[in-house]
């Protein structure tokens, strides 16, 4: 996730004066977009630009946890009633959760949600999953070709893989080289020697719904 440019945030809040900021201690904080520090910075920025920040709704865990978010909203109802709009410093799911819970007011996204990945060190994030709907990691040595190959190839690599790097740029690793190296060390290269057949892409058609059986 990345905070949107300041100008974009001001543009979407034009005409709204009293703002409540939303953040959480989960992904939003980990991605440095909606932790307490970023909510404070946003408050300063908005005040400088003649807005009133009435306060924060900060959820321990994730704003996507509807139960936890509902409890926080109930605790802050007076502040939220007074607000003109909400600025959500978390992913697109969070903005929609708040929209659903408080439909009478508008919730705006302060963040561009970019990908699902890992954070090997603070401020550094790599995309590792595209939620394709059919995990293949058991065949590719725990390294995803769909998320990490620039072409999402299953019978990779393409002819642009050179010296371990992707054709797209000189820095991105060719994921098929990584898969090859690791399968070789596992003695499982046969996994990728056979043709990988045409995939069922309907599994990744949005919007998707899952209903788990009760257990």
């Amino acid at each position: 996730m990345k905070l949107k440019p300041n100008a974009d945030i001001l543009e979407m809040l034009e005409g709204y004066e009293k703002i409540v900021l939303f953040g959480d201690s989960g992904c939003a904080q980990l991605c440095d977009v909606g932790g307490i520090l970023q909510l404070e910075a946003m408050e300063d920025f908005l005040i400088q630009n003649n807005k009133k920040v009435l306060g924060y709704v900060f959820v321990e865990g994730g704003l996507c946890d509807i139960h936890a978010t509902t409890l926080e909203i109930n605790d802050n109802m007076n502040m939220l009633r007074e607000a003109d709009a909400f600025l959500i410093q978390a992913c697109g799911v969070a903005t929609q959760v708040v929209t659903d819970l408080i439909p009478e007011k508008e919730s705006f996204p302060a963040v561009d949600s970019i990908f699902l990945g890992v954070m090997p060190e603070r401020f550094v994030h790599h995309e590792t999953c595209v939620m394709c709907g059919e995990c293949v990691l058991h065949l590719t040595a725990g390294i995803c070709p769909i998320a990490r190959c620039a072409k999402g190839m299953l019978n990779g690599p393409c002819g642009g893989s050179m010296d371990g790097k992707c054709e797209r740029d000189g820095e991105t690793d060719c994921v098929w080289q990584l898969i090859y190296n690791r399968l070789q060390s596992l003695g499982k290269l046969d996994n990728i020697r056979r043709i990988w057949g045409i995939r069922d892409r309907s599994l990744s058609h949005s919007p998707r719904t899952i209903i788990h059986e009760d257990f």
Binding site: P157, S161, G164, Y180
Partner: peptide
Amino acid sequence: FNPFADPLELQ
């Protein structure tokens, strides 16, 4: 095919 791409065996 690209004879110059890597890894050679996989290509």
